[in-house]
Each structure stands twice: as structure tokens, then as C-alpha cells.
Design a protein around this nucleic acid. Sequence first.
DNA 1: CGAATCTCAGGCGAACTGATATGC
DNA 2: CGCATATCAGTTGGCCTGAGATTC
Lengths: 150, 150
Amino acid sequence: MHLRAAYTRLRRRSNLVFSSFGMTSDQYVLLTVLARLGEATQQELVRRCYSDTATIGTMLSLLEAKGLVTRTPHPQDGRALSVRLTRPGRRLAEEMRQSSSGLRTDLAALFNEQELGKLLEFLNRLAGAMRPPARRTATPPSRRLKLLAK
Amino acid sequence: MHLRAAYTRLRRRSNLVFSSFGMTSDQYVLLTVLARLGEATQQELVRRCYSDTATIGTMLSLLEAKGLVTRTPHPQDGRALSVRLTRPGRRLAEEMRQSSSGLRTDLAALFNEQELGKLLEFLNRLAGAMRPPARRTATPPSRRLKLLAK
DNA sequence: CGAATCTCAGGCGAACTGATATGC
DNA sequence: CGCATATCAGTTGGCCTGAGATTC
């Protein structure tokens, strides 16, 4: 519940900030991750944004229509797409970052360095434990059955 | 981003657990909050679930249709509804709690008592800072203007 | 062949907005 | 009257599933 409270409120406030750009916090995350990577396959963005392929694909095609990203065939892997920010995309990401500086300042004021380290470590631990079951190339031979749907 | 990772993964895993009941983690939260309160107005559930009136209203009318909750006029306040779990509602909440015991065990194993205390305190601090602007019965006489929307 | 990347179609739960009725 | 509680209608963004095409 605490996690829920913190996350939903942060997201709500972020959405408020970004709504003036006609963007959402999820789209901001995507742009920011992309800005940091420079170039990435959709698959990689899926992992880094904790989303799924269909959603990321849809979001990217929207951002592409807005001229914020480009998607070109990946040189080494014909299946994949290489996604990059365009100049306007990079600019928008920067503008959004600046417009959320107040929010980030507020957040930074909440924790001292040591506390922040601990908090991030705790969240990391939690996210690690909740990692989706590692993709197995073949489903393990046998598995406890826990169906019992209502 | 860490908060995002932890929350989305936890929610995803929870949804997986609860999908066998045809329920979502949000609905589980609502049932659980209601079980703890015994009786509540929708407004109170909105606050405790960090949601909004329209969403809670829709969710409750669905749960009511399933026979899990009842909504009766509030005795003291004619505007409000008094929401309660039905017997089946209480039973389902308990079944869902049990079916998620494995998940909760996994979570509990991640932190010792002191760490858990710190984590909850940190999240509390964060949620507190992100609290939506306190409802003012009359907008305060003057207020720093920070509009500057794009 | 199996496995991975991506697209498409459809459906769904939850969030948000704006309007409305009603009771404080 | 203003304010609060709740409902309704409509829209949206994101998640999910299942199907298919393509490439490794």
C-alpha cells in the first residue's frame, strides 16, 4: 500500500506537469530512456520501461507520427528496429525535463544522500524479486499446478 | 525509475495471482481496505485507495453487481453511501489473501524488520510530499503564480 | 525446425473530464 | 448560496492476449 501510494501520487503529479505538452509520464520515461541510450531496439525499450512489446510498439508509432523518433531497420538484426530520437524529440525531452525540475527538486529535498541510497537499494531489491520468470527456451519438465480458477 | 520498476512489477505479479479469481489487484486493494474499515463512504475509499470518485464508483457498482458489496444510504449524510462487504465479499477477500500468501512471503523475505521500517517511512515521506494540493474551501487570497505552461 | 522481434486486432480496467442531480 | 457526494457519458492511455509475418 505504501508503494502504491507513493507511485500513484508521483505519477499523477507528473502527468499534471506533462499534460501541458500533451504528453504522459510514460511517454516521458520512454523519451528519457531513449535519450540516454542514444539508440535502442524496441525490445530493449520494453525492458527498460518495464512494459511490453505491443504497448511500446504503439507508443513508438505515435511518437514517430509526431516526428519525435525514427525507426529504421536494425543493421545487424533484420527482425529488430533501431529507434532513435530526432532533433525535435531530443528537444522536447529536454523541455519536459526542465518543466519538471520543480518536482525533482521537491523529491530531492526529501532524502539525504544516504537515505536515497538505501531507498533505491530497497526498491531495487524489490523489483529484482518481482522480476518476471526468466524466459526459458523450453518450459521446465514439470511444474506445480496451481490452477483452481474460481 | 526505481519506484516505477518496483511498483509495476509487483502489480503485474499480483494481477497474475488474482486473475484466477477474475479480479485485479486494484479490486483486491478495494476489498481489503473495505474489510479493514468495516464500513466506509465512497469518498473515504477514494482517499484510502488513492483513486478518484468516478473510478471508485464504477468499481463499486461492479462489485455490487457481483454481490460482493452493498451500498446503502448513509444514515447521517444523505449525500453519501455507506459501503460494506457482503459475506461472499468477505470470503472472497480472504481467499484472495490466502492465494497471495506466497507472494507476501517472498516480499517479507526481502527485508529485515529495520529495513522494512525504513522503506515504509521513506515511501510515506514521498507520498506525503506528493499529496494533492490540500482542498481549500476558498482559494487562499494570493498564491505564487507558477503557470507558465508551454 | 524453434525462437525472437515486431505488427495488428480486439478487449479491458482504470484514469480523467465535464455535466448533472441531490443533500449538506 | 457555496460546497460536497455521487452518477453518468465519453474519451483516453496503457496493459494484455492471440494471431500472424518476418528473420535469426
